[in-house]
Simulated assay, not measured.
Amino acid sequence: MSNRDMYIQKAKAKFDNLGAELKRLEAEGEEMTADAEIKRREHMKLLRRQMATVEDRIEKLHAASEEAWNDVKNGFETAWNDLSETFRQAQARYASDSANS
């Protein structure tokens, strides 16, 4: 397996893992106050949009030519970092919201 194939495989695994964590986070939100639930839904919409962007970038990794690989890889990494940060913020926020409920 080439380095490129391994990179794509790891990217997909990280994406799948985060998707499972997102589902868990969504399920935990069912016990929130109405105001917290509204904010959580907005945050979940943002996370789903970012998940779609990352998924698109993974598809582009598969299709990238050798010449475009570094640019496409950098685009994936930027989208992944944005998603990871948004998810981290959501985890921190909802952990504190559920502790305050």
Rank of each mutant, 00 (worst) to 15 (best):
L22A: 13
L22V: 11
L25G: 05
L25M: 14
E26A: 12
A27S: 15
A27T: 13
A27N: 15
E28I: 00
G29K: 00
E30C: 02
E30Y: 00
E31T: 03
E31R: 00
M32N: 07
M32R: 06
M32W: 08
M32L: 14
T33A: 12
T33K: 09
T33W: 06
T33P: 03
T33L: 12
A34V: 11
D35I: 03
D35E: 13
D35K: 08
A36V: 02
A36M: 05
A36F: 03
E37N: 12
E37H: 11
E37S: 14
E37Q: 15
I38A: 14
I38F: 08
K39G: 05
K39T: 10
R40S: 14
R41C: 01
R41I: 04
H43C: 08
M44P: 00
M44S: 12
M44L: 13
M44R: 04
K45N: 15
K45Y: 05
K45F: 07
L46T: 13
L46P: 01
L46F: 09
R48A: 15
R48I: 14
R49P: 03
R49K: 12
R49H: 09
R49M: 07
R49A: 08
R49L: 06
Q50L: 13
Q50Y: 06
Q50A: 04
M51F: 11
M51Y: 10
M51D: 07
M51V: 05
M51N: 10
A52Y: 06
A52I: 01
T53S: 08
T53D: 08
V54R: 01
V54Q: 03
V54H: 01
V54A: 05
V54Y: 03
V54I: 10
D56M: 12
D56S: 13
R57C: 07
I58A: 08
I58V: 14
E59M: 06
E59Q: 08
E59C: 04
E59D: 10
K60N: 15
K60Y: 07
K60C: 08
K60P: 01
L61K: 00
H62S: 09
A64K: 00
A64H: 01
A64G: 03
A64V: 01
A64P: 03
E66F: 04
A68N: 05
W69S: 06
W69R: 04
W69F: 10
N70M: 07
N70A: 07
N70Q: 08
D71C: 04
D71S: 11
V72M: 05
K73A: 06
K73D: 02
K73Q: 11
N74W: 01
N74K: 10
G75C: 02
F76E: 01
F76R: 00
E77I: 06
E77K: 09
A79V: 01
W80A: 07
N81R: 08
N81D: 09
N81M: 06
N81W: 04
D82A: 08
L83R: 02
L83A: 08
L83H: 03
T86R: 10
T86A: 14
T86F: 07
T86N: 13
F87Q: 04
